[in-house]
Design a protein around this nucleic acid. Sequence first.
DNA 1: TTTATTTACGAAACCGGTTGCGTGTTATAA
DNA 2: TTATAACACGCAACCGGTTTCGTAAATAAA
Lengths: 345, 345
Amino acid sequence: MISQNHTTIKTIAAKLGISKGTVSKALQDSHEISIATKNKVLEAANELHYKPNHFASGLKSRKSKAIAVIVPEIVDSFFSLAIKGIETVTQKKGYHINIYITNDLISKEKEIFKLLSDGRVDGVLISICRDATCSDHIKELMDIGMPLVFFDRAVEDIETGKVVTDDFKSGYNAAQHLIEQGCKRVYFFSISENLSILQKRVEGFKRALFENDIIEAGNNVYQISTDENKCLETITSLLSDPDLRPDGVVISVELLTIPIYIICKKLNISIPEDLKVICFSNLRYASLLSPPLTTITQPAFEIGEQAASLICSAIANNQSLKNEKIICPSRLDVRNSSLVSDNWV
Amino acid sequence: MISQNHTTIKTIAAKLGISKGTVSKALQDSHEISIATKNKVLEAANELHYKPNHFASGLKSRKSKAIAVIVPEIVDSFFSLAIKGIETVTQKKGYHINIYITNDLISKEKEIFKLLSDGRVDGVLISICRDATCSDHIKELMDIGMPLVFFDRAVEDIETGKVVTDDFKSGYNAAQHLIEQGCKRVYFFSISENLSILQKRVEGFKRALFENDIIEAGNNVYQISTDENKCLETITSLLSDPDLRPDGVVISVELLTIPIYIICKKLNISIPEDLKVICFSNLRYASLLSPPLTTITQPAFEIGEQAASLICSAIANNQSLKNEKIICPSRLDVRNSSLVSDNWV
DNA sequence: TTTATTTACGAAACCGGTTGCGTGTTATAA
DNA sequence: TTATAACACGCAACCGGTTTCGTAAATAAA
């Protein structure tokens, strides 16, 4: 059904009785074409609804003006906001964005990388998946010259642009806040031991505990499965055992928020009286939850913007990315889920 | 920085001492090439890390294996979930997706359409923007043979594939539910008079009022600006005037939820005692809000899947889309924001 | 053994725009 | 007036696959 009689440069050339090359140069406003000819070409192009063919120009230029954006999830306040930040920048600079969702599966991430080596995109923005056990596929693509920038979830030992938040400090602040609110046994709920950003949050978290002389006998960092049932099971067992139950918890990712709230309701654990909760989250509805959720709010939009700017300039300058890390600090938004009752706002 | 010595079909041909055409055919597993040659080619291709060039193949085939997805917003439970539905289907069928965000601006929507006529995408999935005062740009693109499917927000008078929910019935059900809960003065908060899906929701809403003999003297459908300040202003004036204040409200889009909750809190209007609220929303956190929000939940993921399936098969079969409308019914999720106190679950 | 087919591959045109080089024409300088 | 340069444009190769057509060699049929 695609229109057969699309107009090409040849059509215009034939109509005006000039050569292909002249038309091409006229459309590029080349100095070696007279104004008169340029005007005629422009007029004819307009009249015939001429649109330059993306494949033909890309074949020569080796540029697609497209950027791949790879995320673990899209139904997520952080990632959707980051994508929006990316889009505002790329759109201004004339780039298109291709979205790929890994669902946190390394297998899918690898498959996506296979698709990206055909010249379809000029660069890659990626937040790696949770079970990032290997990063060979990323290195391979970079080896053939593909510019790549990590945002949020980065591979530590790959040297390229990275845009992240101050994870150590955020983890530290989260724990410190809970301790200041009187918590004696604070847990950290994570979803992966592999992600460096989560490792750093944990380090900051532990540091705060250490500085406050909170030395637990056992573990206080728990890896929670993102499988819904397993997740509920693990958290339920932690919160229902009096010997284990914390009085404060730092949640490393937004998607664990719902389970915590649900389980607390079911177990009749009152937030914040019995358990103070703080979550790394960009949820716009945090203040409307019951109780309103204290969050470490990442500057998702800005992270997206910065990452996009980095990749765009790397592409434009045709230069490889230095191992530079841009840090966009997070903000602590204190709400009722972490406050003792008489501090309620 | 892009690797200079990428391997092409020519490289392989030279290495094996055969012609380009033979290599090409071998890679396509053509019947006119011997098994021996095919194996040699495959081996060489593998060894040299050959990747077919996207532009070169696209130039001939006029296929990009890419689909444009145009949405008004991405930081939105409905649209992000719909995109996820789209992705699951397109990924299986080997299509890439290009995301475009209009921010509900017709000007941006038009600009995006200009970009899509260069063969970069094989089809378009779109949920049009709010101030859809004109749809010429859409018709133009379709006129040159671009397959296009609307999802959720469609242009009524353009004949092509559409995937929507049962808007009339949903509007009806929402109003009916509030009336059953004892509401006497029910309002409908909309954001656009132009969107046909909102018109239908309003029609259903009005129908329910009519059937229940609720005939307001004045208007009970209000267009709320999405500008934050104007929005707060309008709603505040409606809810603070005793002569105007409704006891039930149907909210047509998710983004008005936060303002309503905030204003009610500020004006000390209790939900649901003073005002019962029901919202068209896919918010996963609806049950955690205070109070839990009654929603008309659209099957966003399924709508995305269906739309993607439609466009993919239209592209594959190279046939124009019939004016078929797929309706994915919504679900009423009753929660506390619309229940009289002694009905609380 | 001769003729008819099939098999396997090469040559070259093609997709549509880009670009370096060559050349005839006009304008400027000597 | 002649030499020189600037101008404006055509020609053709090129980007990297795809595809049609032609043909020599191998196989099958007569």
